[in-house]
């Protein structure tokens, strides 16, 4: 048996894939066990009347808080793709009474892959490859996507989800309190999860709600969603998808709880309770040149895909207190 036999190569490839997955839950589990310092790295909520650490919220009228969870191609809470940077800028402009925050959702210890980690140098290399233009460089960069995909599956796995989701929720709670969110203030919190960030948003939502005594809703932008019990705790989930986006379908195929044959799964229960709405943005793909954030491709009325996505998400964020946030929106023709 030589290494180059097809059977051996397949075995090695499957083994390497599973090996990378087997170590994926350890960060969340180790965090929960207290191996990396204090639990949750949380701060207590500010006392009544005490100003928050960062107070943009006190400088203007704030009507809602938005937490953006990036897609699986991110390495830190700083969105590297310029499209995402511009998307968040535009969202801030469009919803002027919203405080828009970002959390890196693929690490419960909130450490950037390129930051203080044993493999930080490797991830910096992978990021450089990912940003390259040659195909072999981009394949190397896919390792970042693979690593973060496993974290999405950690959130979706009922063995690990309760730990992982509490971890990411703790990060969001900390950010929200720093940005001035007052517990039990009743101000709506909207979690926007792009791609794999959608699942993590749904998983964390009930814990954010519990910690802050706040109404929490989720907007999934092409989210790959499992049948997570968190769906039953959110005010609503709007699943915004592009007609050409096949990636989000992975969730419907991979996670049996989303299959119609399990009527009492959290997903199907939430659908029957009217908590899940689907909104199709006609022409968009998941990512890339005809993706949700593409600024060059146009729809019939002359807006770019990017602008359509911003408009729709901004409208949904503004509507986040309403019972049926999709009612005022219609799909866009290509």
């Amino acid at each position: 048996m030589t290494l180059l036999e097809p059977g051996t190569l397949l075995f090695v490839a499957v083994f390497a894939l599973l090996l990378s997955g087997a170590f994926a839950p350890l960060e969340a589990l180790g965090w929960w066990a207290g191996w990396f310092g204090d639990l949750a790295d949380e701060e207590p909520p500010p006392a009544q009347g005490e100003p928050a650490t960062i107070i943009p919220a006190l400088e203007r009228d704030v009507g809602r808080y938005v937490v953006f969870l990036s897609g699986i191609d991110s390495v830190s809470d700083e969105p590297v793709p310029q499209r995402q940077v511009r998307f968040l800028e535009r969202l801030r402009e469009e919803v002027s009474d919203a405080v828009v925050l970002q959390v890196f959702p693929y690490s419960v210890t909130n450490r950037a892959l390129t930051g203080e980690r044993i493999f930080a140098r490797f991830w910096r290399w992978a990021l450089r490859q990912k940003l390259g233009t040659r195909s072999h460089e981009q394949i190397a960069g896919m390792l970042i996507n693979l690593r973060n995909t496993w974290q999405v599956l950690v959130s979706a796995d009922r063995r690990y989800g309760p730990f992982y989701d509490r971890g990411t929720a703790a990060l969001m709670v900390r950010q929200l309190r720093r940005a001035g969110y007052q517990d039990a203030s009743g101000l709506p919190i909207v979690l926007i999860g792009y791609s794999g960030g959608g699942q993590i948003a749904v998983g964390a939502a009930p814990f954010v709600r519990e910690a802050l005594d706040a109404p929490v809703s989720v907007l999934s932008l092409g989210g790959v969603l499992a049948s997570d019990p968190g769906l039953l705790a959110v005010r609503h989930l709007v699943h915004v998808i592009g007609a050409r986006d096949r990636v989000h379908k992975a969730g419907a195929i991979m996670f049996p709880g989303r299959w119609p044959i399990f009527p009492y799964s959290p997903w199907n229960l939430a659908r029957r309770h009217g908590k899940i709405r689907r909104l199709v943005l006609s022409p968009c793909n998941h990512t890339g040149d005809d993706g949700y954030l593409d600024e060059t491709k146009l729809v019939e009325d002359g807006r770019s895909y990017f602008e359509v996505t911003v408009d729709v998400l901004a409208a949904l964020v503004r509507d986040s207190t309403g019972p049926a946030p999709v009612a005022s929106l219609t799909p866009v023709a290509a």
Binding site: F15, L18, F23, A24, P25, L153, V154, D157, M254
Partner: peptide, 15 residues
Amino acid sequence: LFNFLVLTPYLGNGV
């Protein structure tokens, strides 16, 4: 010897 792969999220139980 490969039983540690049971840790793999979502696929572990099948493995």
